[in-house]
């Protein structure tokens, strides 16, 4: 049952991702495809028993980050854009072919390896695995320094974004 749900969520995520990359009509539709991908990935996280992270995925990615994208797209009132003109196309086709070949190799490798190839599998999870209690305890004890560092990162990013996007006085 959970395996089939995983396949369904995975299919939605891949279709949404393809829709985001291949849609050249408008950027808002791309952002909405990204929302579908993020929500599907949140479902996959819940299936993998990462409940807290799944909830944060939906809140932060599908909620905040994509709203920011949509806001900027509508603020800038973007025209439609297409794929590159023929002059620049050869390099990009090469890039796409290389990415496709690497992808095929990776997926083939991942699916043909036996299940025992990744050691350390645990069937029995501890009580409350993936809940906010256990994740929070790990975050605020073993990884407290990294957590504080992320607060500095967020502060500097916030100041940087305000400075970058601010209209200079005089020269609009």
């Amino acid at each position: 049952m959970s395996l089939w749900l995983f396949y369904a969520f995975g299919a939605v995520a891949v279709i949404g991702a393809l829709g985001m990359v291949l849609n050249v009509r408008n950027a808002v539709a791309s952002a909405l495809c990204l929302v579908a991908t993020m929500v599907a990935l949140g479902g996959v996280h819940v299936l993998l028993e990462a409940y807290f992270v799944g909830a944060l995925q939906v809140l932060v990615y599908a909620g905040a980050i994509v709203v920011l994208f949509v806001f900027v797209v509508m603020l800038l009132n973007l025209r439609r854009d297409g794929f590159p003109p023929a002059r620049a196309r050869l390099g990009r086709v090469t890039a796409a072919a290389v990415v496709g070949a690497a992808l095929a190799g990776l997926v083939g490798l991942a699916l043909t390896l036996p299940e025992t190839a990744v050691p350390g599998a645990t069937a029995a999870l501890p009580e409350g695995f993936g809940g906010y209690r256990r994740v929070g305890a790990a975050l605020f004890t073993d990884y407290l320094l990294a957590f504080e560092a992320t607060s500095l990162l967020l502060l500097s990013a916030m100041v940087g974004a305000v400075v970058l996007a601010k209209r200079r006085g005089g020269d609009a």
């Binding site: 905040a64 920011l68 994208f69 900027v72 990162l153 967020l154 500097s156 940087g160 400075v163 970058l164």
Partner: peptide, 17 residues
């Protein structure tokens, strides 16, 4: 997730500039 949020904020700031 935190790094992604910071990256989006700065990236969209650069985009607007």
């Amino acid at each position: 997730i935190v790094v992604a949020a910071a990256e989006v904020a700065v990236g969209l700031g650069i985009l607007i500039a």
